[in-house]
């Protein structure tokens, strides 16, 4: 039996690994290769230029700005989204007041309704969400400023996306709004699998909601939170942040480069400026940032797995 074991395993893995190599590994290698050329993306001719693109990148102010914004996205977005999602799902599943005749552990009143409502934004495509918010942020006739006028705050009429100090936060708010529901559902599922007797024991010991959350829910949910964190970080570095910045912001890229992110910069260099090679160079930098992010989160989040 030992004899044919590897052949057997390889037989099963060949196809998926082949597909993985073709569609995942190979584009990475291709990008790295192109980053050493002067390929424009518009003609088949190019030549090797060594490290020129990398040298250029390190002196490119806009690259550093986009890197800074991307890192801010990767730090702030998961923190805010996951904290909010944890709070919401805790309230939905565990945080309710004890009701007469009900189970010992339950969510707040109407929690099943909230669960559905939180998930709504997830159903909408990110492009539609971005467009909707672009309308809402319209300083002249948008929903937010109209509301402010409606409650008598005529003097407070921010420019939102038109203001370099607000624009990035406006974009982040949209991403939080559109992704928090997914994590609420994810964490709810995780919480549902935590045995109720643990909570009951905590209740008998007189634990309040806050200590129940930090001593029971969070430790038992740690694995889910960690993968959620990585997922959210990659989302914030990648496609989602590109979509909202490209669709919503001034330029796009924000007034005075205030919302430009690495993915947007890659896109602009490749498809606006005809500098595909330089774009792949920035893409390589983005790859490094993403890998570092995942590695750090995994490293920091390493804990003993609790069996229950």
């Amino acid at each position: 039996m030992q004899h044919g074991k590897y052949r057997f395993i390889v037989g099963f893995l060949a196809l998926p690994l082949g597909l993985y190599a073709l569609f995942v590994v190979w584009p990475f290698i291709q990008s790295i290769y192109y980053s050493f050329t002067d390929w424009t993306g518009l003609s088949p001719e190019f030549k090797m230029v060594g490290f020129d693109n990398y040298r250029r990148m390190f002196h490119d102010e806009i690259f550093w700005k986009s890197l800074e914004h991307s890192l801010l996205f990767a730090l702030v977005l998961p923190l805010v989204t996951i904290s909010l999602a944890l709070f919401f799902s805790f309230m939905i599943n565990v945080g309710g007041r004890r009701r007469k005749g009900g189970p010992a552990i339950s969510g707040v009143r109407g929690s099943s309704f909230y669960k559905i409502v939180y998930f709504f934004p997830q159903v909408l495509s990110i492009a539609i969400v971005a467009l909707l918010f672009a309308f809402a942020y319209n300083p002249d006739s948008g929903a937010i400023n109209s509301f402010l006028r409606g409650i008598g705050l005529d003097s407070v009429q921010p420019l939102w996306l038109g203001d370099p100090s607000l624009a990035l936060w406006c974009v982040m708010a949209v991403l939080v709004w559109s992704t928090v529901g997914f994590f609420v559902v994810l964490f709810s599922a995780g919480m549902a699998s935590i045995p109720a007797d643990l909570y009951e024991a905590a209740l008998l010991d007189g634990a309040n909601r806050i200590s129940t959350f930090f001593r029971i829910t969070l430790p038992l949910l740690w694995d889910t939170v960690q993968s959620g964190w990585v997922y959210m970080g990659i989302l914030a570095l990648g496609a989602e942040s590109f979509a909202v910045v490209q669709i919503m912001t001034t330029g796009p890229g924000g007034p005075d480069y205030s919302t430009t992110v690495m993915v947007l910069y890659v896109y602009q260099k490749a498809f606006r400026d005809g500098q595909a090679a330089y774009a792949t160079t920035i893409g390589v930098a983005l790859l490094v940032v993403t890998l570092l992010f995942a590695a750090i989160v995994m490293r920091l989040g390493r804990r003993e797995r609790l069996e229950y």
Partner: peptide, 14 residues
């Protein structure tokens, strides 16, 4: 008022 936050369509509409 608010022009810096308008896109081309919004400004043309106003």
């Amino acid at each position: 008022q608010g022009t810096p936050g308008l896109d081309h369509i919004q400004s043309q509409t106003a």
